[in-house]
Design a protein around this nucleic acid. Structure first.
Lengths: 230, 230
DNA sequence: GATGGAGTAGTTGTACACAAGGTTGCGAAT
DNA sequence: ATTCGCAACCTTGTGTACAACTACTCCATC
């Protein structure tokens, strides 16, 4: 696969994966190849090429005679994914870190501003998008491509499930504002560390926040009350 | 994809990937979909499904109108892959380790015996196979599936390139016996650690050996600088 | 002899028809 | 009323023809 067809493939792939992560296609939803083919003005063949990759990466599950279903994950499997994600988070500052220039620091500052604005008027969709944008900005801090690729996989797999509870899709209506507040702290801390050029610190902060994020997720799943922030 | 077709897919995928890692398909070789379809008694469609996955994972590169070529990797990219592999190696003993029972210890002992036998009569192909079997045995020491998956990816990508030099395909004829000797030490050390139930130690030993393995690879690459004949 | 260009053989990419498999709902028997 | 069976319908999986594209050969031209 090469040339123009390759570009189309990447476009469709990135778009569908984004839809899955942003919960436009929530877990359990059934996609139909014919519909997607019509939307992207092509035949089923190239669509199937994209769906195959999404299936290999664990976002979808195609069942013969039934359909292509967006996967859900049980808390046990999610724990394994999160544990690895915690470890990889720290590596951002260790493996081929790029020394951030002033422009990078500004980008992180802009991210903090967006986050502060969001905290004033919480919005699920905007939060999901901001979270994703911030992740991709973080990834620019390392040049290690395999690390980028694996981190992306773990991010997309865990974040959409986490968003499901944070956004109230699983019966938790009050968590969104709280999660935005936690996220604002993370963005703020990391932006400061980036401004100082302390990339190892960035990795450690990120690691801590990913771990806490999962702890809150588990607490909600158990039905516990969230610890009040002080 | 499900049921019988799924099993066939996995079978062909594992076989082709194994052929790539064992250098039955050395880097640069061109595969033809039609031939593979004939070998596995099917049409091009299921074959293309397998090749697509192998391409997504970086083992192959399909070029329209030309063919499907087994990838090679430059030393720079390989360094990134190795660095991440070093870090992940240690996680085997940290993330969801399984406490090895007596049977597991025996399996590692048997692996050591195979390795000692190989040291007496070096053989490239047998070494490649043993190395691969040992890797898969190591993977049984963790229950963390994402870690297993990523480790496999990094292993297959690096090992085939490393084997290329260790096996003399790149102009190094004397390295095979030496590499087998290094490998014997690693297997021996790890077998001992497993027998003691010291999984953290296993991870640390593995990490050290992966790092040293890459150091030797780089040293060979630097000392050589011979022009490619074409 | 070197060079340029059209032709040809061979390969992957796409579209589409059909096979295989599953779900759903209706109807008859109990 | 309930349950079993069957049939129509829908969706993914496979096979195949053809389009798109590349590399190579051969021959005319300079």
């Amino acid at each position: 696969m090469t040339g123009e067809g390759r570009a189309r493939f990447e476009r469709i792939y990135a778009l569908l994966r984004s839809r899955i992560c942003l919960l436009d296609y929530p877990p359990g939803v059934r996609l139909r190849e014919e519909d997607l083919a019509k939307e992207f003005e092509t035949s089923r063949t190239p669509i199937r090429r994209v769906l195959a990759r999404l299936e290999d990466e664990g976002y979808l599950r195609s069942v013969h005679g039934v359909g292509t279903i967006v996967t859900d994950i049980d808390i046990a499997s999610l724990e394994q994914v999160y544990r690895l994600r915690v470890e990889l988070s720290e590596l951002i500052g260790k493996l081929s870190p790029v020394t951030p220039d002033e422009e990078a620091a500004d980008l992180f500052g802009a991210m903090r501003a967006r986050c502060e604005a969001l905290a004033k008027s919480p919005n699920q969709r905007a939060f999901a998008q901001l979270n994703m944008d911030f992740f991709h900005l973080l990834m620019t801090l390392t040049e290690n491509e395999p690390l980028q690729e694996f981190s992306e996989r773990l991010y997309y797999q865990t974040t959409r499930i986490w968003l499901k509870t944070a956004a109230g899709l699983d019966g938790y209506e009050d968590t969104l504002a709280s999660e935005i507040d936690f996220f604002l702290r993370e963005v703020s801390d990391i932006a400061t560390a980036v401004a100082c050029g302390a990339l190892e610190t960035v990795g450690q902060i990120r690691r801590a926040h990913v771990a806490m994020s999962f702890a809150r997720l588990k607490a909600r799943a158990r039905g516990d009350a969230l610890p009040e922030d002080s």
